[in-house]
Design a protein around this nucleic acid. Sequence first.
DNA 1: CGTGAAAACCCCTGGCA
DNA 2: TGCCAGGGGTTTTCACG
Lengths: 147, 147
Amino acid sequence: MPETEVDDLDHAILRLLHEDARRTYADMAERVGLSTAATKRRVDRMRESGVITGFTVQVDHARLGWPVEAFSEIRYAGTASVSEIVDSASRQPEVQAVYTLAGDLDALVQVRVRDLAHLQEVIDRLRRNGTVTGTRTLMVLGRWTRT
Amino acid sequence: MPETEVDDLDHAILRLLHEDARRTYADMAERVGLSTAATKRRVDRMRESGVITGFTVQVDHARLGWPVEAFSEIRYAGTASVSEIVDSASRQPEVQAVYTLAGDLDALVQVRVRDLAHLQEVIDRLRRNGTVTGTRTLMVLGRWTRT
DNA sequence: CGTGAAAACCCCTGGCA
DNA sequence: TGCCAGGGGTTTTCACG
């Protein structure tokens, strides 16, 4: 774990990449007031140090036939370990993310499905799996995400 | 809403971009068995049609000094509209995402903060804001995200 | 919708302040 | 750390099947 020094220029570059990860180094360089070589070197360094973990595409899942999104709060039996919780949930292909929690809830699972019947099927699979003792599902009606 | 026709080749390209959004068209073309021109045209078309909504960088927030992540479940007074709910929450810079929900909960708010004192401050701000009638906060201990 | 080729642009490395 | 400069690769557009 090297000491991660991230200055204002790095933050500016990260903000530009957050808006559009396919921006060219030349474009970013002009906006932050550096040369393209210096900009690339900073991006490479942030990748190397682990500040940047990757670049990804954002898709409109509804247009790909997966319009229904939900969160499932899950309680597990006291014997379940964290890795078992994550493993059993992440095995389901509809599960997008698993958050393990402090408190009486053990996990918050984000799922993406084709329709309500499909949602019920996924929840049933989650409940059967491992040592689940209870679930509560929150259906997402709308979402807002920063920039 | 144009009819969105996404075939297997498009899905293959999306998967490659999901793994690394900064891949070159030449690289993707070779992997899916198309020319670079055809590959670029498909990506352009998916951007145009709204299937692709953007490209973004993934960062390790902990290394940027924001190691604490939490979800806040929020109930609003019956007079609050959905847009008011989203507006009041998204105004907080620490709020990463707002999900509006069906059921007795009105919203699930994802926040990212520097420490626990900071978390308490954000929750206080959320509670004061608008017509919040109740909150419950889930602290994230760990997260798993697909690929 | 696909290819292939040409020009423009960008990446990337090396050398130096 | 930063800039400049060059050769090589990529992007982008075009005409065409």
